[in-house]
Each structure stands twice: as structure tokens, then as C-alpha cells.
């Protein structure tokens, strides 16, 4: 078996094993309802982190606007499931339709935003993605969509009137209310597996290698005939689509979804970025592990009440220093078990 294939199978296996353990814990009543409430958010964050890791790790472009794509996915998905909730009674089918629409809308946004944004480099690109994320959140907050016997009503920034028995789809800053609860832990895990399948296949394909070539050296990639714009856009759009799928899952776990700075602002984008960097840039398995652990950490520290977020931040700083500081890297190399007992690398053997 090829090394990469084995590596991918380990990741899939890990997700499935964790899923089975959690189901066992729930069945035997060993999991508190608080923890059960965290399961779907954990899946959401893992999915968005996988999407962002594709952008940061393989395309090599820092995006701090992925919460915006999540927001697009969440709102378009929820609007569709609300519209169709009477005609489509099968919950799974309804979710799949919402998922398809949400993912497509997020991909479309990613594509449209990607065209201008990907011309920029480095930190300028990061700040523009942040700007787009904030714009999306801002616009959704003043968007009114309603439906009644007269048909659909749209409005931007001015509240509109609809008939008494009409249906509000998006009510400005009040967001979307009364969403059917369609998300479940099982659906979340299936979505994680699908996203993993998509990104693993992408990065091991011809297109994936082209994307990584652009990341490593844009000019040499261009000189061997790789279409820079096409592959950059491809990676960015897929990354946005996966974030959108995470958003659909997120929205259908809540009864009311609103676009606030806490859930779709840059804070969320940064939180996802923290998962990606801490889990290891370019490692999808790491992203999932970091997303799960860092979502659990504040809950595990709940006994410390007020101090938990403070401890969280200290742990974050300490982990970053431990992982990335050049001095700590030397220290770990000198004292690791692998270095003492494992095979010596060619450099050390000399």
C-alpha cells in the first residue's frame, strides 16, 4: 500500500473510531447533554478547518474570511430548507437539498471573490478576505426576504411589510427563525468523511500537484505552463464550498440563525485559523484533532469558571511557542525518544 493511501486510511479510520466510541458513550448514558450539544459544532468546525487548510496549507494563501463563506452556506441552506419544509417531508432529503444549495452558493461566492482577491499577495490578500467576510456578514444583517400570496419580497436595508400569513425567510438582523432541526452527529461525521475524501483526492491529483507547485514557486510553475489563475481559483472555490457545507450543518443545528460578530465575524475566521495552524498547516487530520480538542478545552475547564478562557489563551500561546520556536525545535530534537532510539537520519549518521 502506498504511504499516502495508508495515511489517508488512518485519518478515515480515526474519524470512524471516534464516532463509534461517542455513540457507545451516548448509548450507555456516559455522556452529559452538554457534551452532546458540542458534537455538531465540533463537526462544523472540523469541516470548515479542513476547507481552510486546503486554502492555507496547499494553496499557500492566508484567508481570514472563511466565516463569511460559512455564513453564505448557513443562510442560503436555511432559506431553502425553510421554503421546502412543507413540500419535502423527508428530513434527510431536505438536508441534502439545503446542503447542495448552501455549498453551491458558497462556492459561487468563493469564485466571484477569488477572481479579484487572488491577484493580491500575502497579507494584502488576507486583509481583503477579512474585508469580504465582514461585508457578507453586514449585508446579511440588512437583508429582508419574505414570501406571501403576492410572491417573494426582497429588500436591502429597509424593512418591508408582508402579509399576515406570509413567511419570513430572512428578517434582517433577526436572521432566520424556526429552522427545522436537521443536523445530527451522524450527518456531521458523514460530512467530515466526504470533505476528507474530496480534499485528499484533490491534493493527490494532477490539479492538486499544480496547486502545490504554485504555492512553492509561482514563477517556475507559470514557466512550465501551469495556468495560475485557474488552479488558484479552483482551490479557493473548493475551500469556500467546504466552508459553506460546514455552515449548512451549523445552521440546521440551531432554531434561529443570526449573523453576529461572534458566529460569522472575523473572530470565527480566526478561531478556525487557530485550529488549522495548531493542527499543522497542510495536515487535514491535525485540523480535525485541533478543532475537537480546542472546542472541548473550554468545556473541560468549565470547573474553573471565570479563569477558563484565560487558561485557554495561555495554553494557546504556550503551544505555539513550544511548537514553533526554533530553540524549542532544537530542544525537542535533542530529547525526543525518536531521536534517541529510532533510526538516525542521514544527516545525523554522518
Amino acid at each position: 500500500m502506498k504511504k499516502t493511501t495508508r495515511d489517508h486510511l488512518i485519518t478515515f479510520g480515526l474519524v470512524v473510531v471516534v464516532y463509534l466510541i461517542v455513540q457507545l458513550l451516548i448509548a450507555t448514558g456516559n455522556m452529559s447533554s452538554l457534551m452532546q450539544g458540542l458534537l455538531v459544532p465540533m463537526c462544523t468546525y472540523s469541516i470548515v478547518a479542513i476547507g481552510l487548510n486546503l486554502c492555507v496549507g496547499y494553496l499557500g494563501e492566508l484567508s481570514i474570511g472563511h466565516a463569511g463563506f460559512m455564513c453564505v452556506g448557513a443562510f442560503s441552506g436555511a432559506v431553502v430548507s425553510k421554503l421546502l419544509s412543507e413540500t419535502v417531508t423527508n428530513g434527510i432529503l431536505l438536508f441534502v437539498i439545503a446542503l447542495a444549495v448552501g455549498t453551491l452558493m458558497a462556492a459561487l461566492c468563493g469564485f466571484l471573490i477569488g477572481i479579484p482577491v487572488l491577484r493580491l499577495r500575502g497579507d494584502y490578500l488576507a486583509i481583503v478576505t477579512l474585508a469580504f467576510g465582514e461585508i457578507i456578514k453586514n449585508i446579511i444583517n440588512v437583508l429582508y426576504i419574505g414570501k406571501d400570496s403576492q410572491g417573494f419580497h426582497f429588500s436591502l436595508s429597509n424593512p418591508i411589510e408582508i402579509e399576515e400569513e406570509g413567511l419570513w425567510l430572512i428578517n434582517g438582523a433577526k436572521g432566520i427563525a424556526k429552522i427545522t432541526h436537521l443536523s445530527s452527529f451522524t450527518i456531521g461525521v458523514v460530512l467530515i468523511l466526504i470533505s476528507l475524501f474530496v480534499v485528499y483526492n484533490l491534493v493527490n491529483s494532477r490539479s492538486g500537484r499544480a496547486i502545490m507547485a504554485i504555492r512553492d514557486n509561482r514563477i517556475s510553475a507559470e514557466s512550465v505552463g501551469i495556468n495560475i489563475t485557474k488552479y488558484k481559483l479552483m482551490a479557493f472555490t473548493i475551500s469556500a464550498a467546504i466552508a459553506g457545507a460546514g455552515g449548512v450543518l451549523y445552521a440546521h443545528n440551531l432554531s434561529t440563525v443570526t449573523a453576529t460578530p461572534a458566529n460569522f465575524g472575523y473572530n470565527m475566521s480566526i478561531m478556525i485559523l487557530v485550529f488549522v495552524v495548531l493542527g499543522g498547516i497542510g495536515s487535514f487530520r491535525g485540523s480535525i484533532i485541533a478543532a475537537v480538542l480546542l472546542t472541548l478545552l473550554p468545556e473541560l475547564l468549565r470547573g474553573l469558571s471565570d479563569y477558563r478562557m484565560l487558561i485557554y489563551s495561555i495554553v494557546l500561546i504556550a503551544m505555539m511557542l513550544f511548537n514553533w520556536s526554533p530553540r524549542m525545535k532544537d530542544f525537542r530534537a535533542a530529547h525526543s525518544l525518536k531521536g534517541r532510539f529510532g533510526k538516525k537520519t542521514a544527516k545525523e549518521a554522518e
Binding site: V277, I317, L321, N323, W324, P326, R327
Partner: peptide, 18 residues
């Protein structure tokens, strides 16, 4: 300071931690 020669992303996340 300990991250002076590390990748810019690591420094960014540390700044977020701070």
C-alpha cells in the same frame, strides 16, 4: 521574540493568543 525566525503564521496565531 522566541518566534523571530518561525513562519509568519505561527507569530500571527501567537498574537491572537495574546
Amino acid at each position: 521574540k522566541p518566534l523571530r525566525r518561525a513562519t509568519p503564521l505561527a507569530v500571527l496565531i501567537t498574537a491572537i493568543g495574546v
